[in-house]
Design a protein around this nucleic acid. Sequence first.
DNA 1: TCCAACCCCTTGGACGTCCTAGTAGATTTC
DNA 2: GAAATCTACTAGGACGTCCAAGGGGTTGGA
Lengths: 169, 169
Amino acid sequence: MGTPLPRDPIAEARRNWERRGWGDVAAPMAAITAIMRTQQILLARIEEILKPFGLTFARYELLALLGFSRDGSLPMSHASALLQVHPTSVTNAVDRLEQAGLVARSPHPTDGRTTLVGLTADGRRLAERATAALNTEVFAHSGFTDDDVEQLIRVLGGFRRRAGDFVDG
Amino acid sequence: MGTPLPRDPIAEARRNWERRGWGDVAAPMAAITAIMRTQQILLARIEEILKPFGLTFARYELLALLGFSRDGSLPMSHASALLQVHPTSVTNAVDRLEQAGLVARSPHPTDGRTTLVGLTADGRRLAERATAALNTEVFAHSGFTDDDVEQLIRVLGGFRRRAGDFVDG
DNA sequence: TCCAACCCCTTGGACGTCCTAGTAGATTTC
DNA sequence: GAAATCTACTAGGACGTCCAAGGGGTTGGA
């Protein structure tokens, strides 16, 4: 999985599509496949940076989200909605972060169904250090030009809105 | 995980980054996060279409790759390289596809280390039907305009080449 | 010739994601 | 006010991905 290929496998797939008479959908197929592969590359880079902190990307995202919330604490359902992952994924992440002493669960003061997750002091410190590392090690040399970034945000933002992720502009 | 959010959580994150004084990396952070989320949406759509065929995206990719190879058969290491996944992921996919009678393993004629994976007749038929379904149900209404597709292929292709995925132009 | 280095594949384990229940609390409806 | 419905979280399981380790097959240099 290390050595570069002599040819772009996605361009190859696109040619195969065209050869079979699916030229009308070959380009979107290639674009979607490229998104899949790019995500894989980026995720690997991020995980590599987070590993020394004992974090995965899923756990980091939760930590960062809590760090930006008013009082460092949120209902689990709210975290699930904002991170746009299944509730059980939040349960999983909270279990492990709680084990590590980075977050703590507490009951909601008025709604007995709801559990709040809050950062511990350790959790807040680690989130800040991990963010600093990601900023300098990943985001600062993302591999995209400023123009690329501009276009990606515009194109993918439109896609996500049309896909029903959010409703505002 | 179903109802749209009132605000774009990625734009929100970007504003948080800027507020903390990380404005220099806020845009790439937003672009990368958008790629992550877009991949998640697209993968869910694809898996939904493949489910009636008893396939996952990982298994479909292997089936499709074999369908485009000369004789419908490849060394497992070659499949791993072309699909750009870990060898154990190929082992896993082949195990399940073989169980379903869609592929078959056979020894390499001259190299005793190598195992070939080949499509069965059932496998080839299913790959064709699944591809047709993806073409009409996903790629034909990708949610991207032709311009979007053009830009994504260009931007992500450049990124992947610089990341060492492949070496040609 | 023969052994060290390398390659190919598999096993076992850790993680994250989702789905399907299932339990408990809150809200709505009649 | 009681029943039906909804909401929040958790347990268990399937799947894909990766890493680490191990067992054979190949190869090339001493």
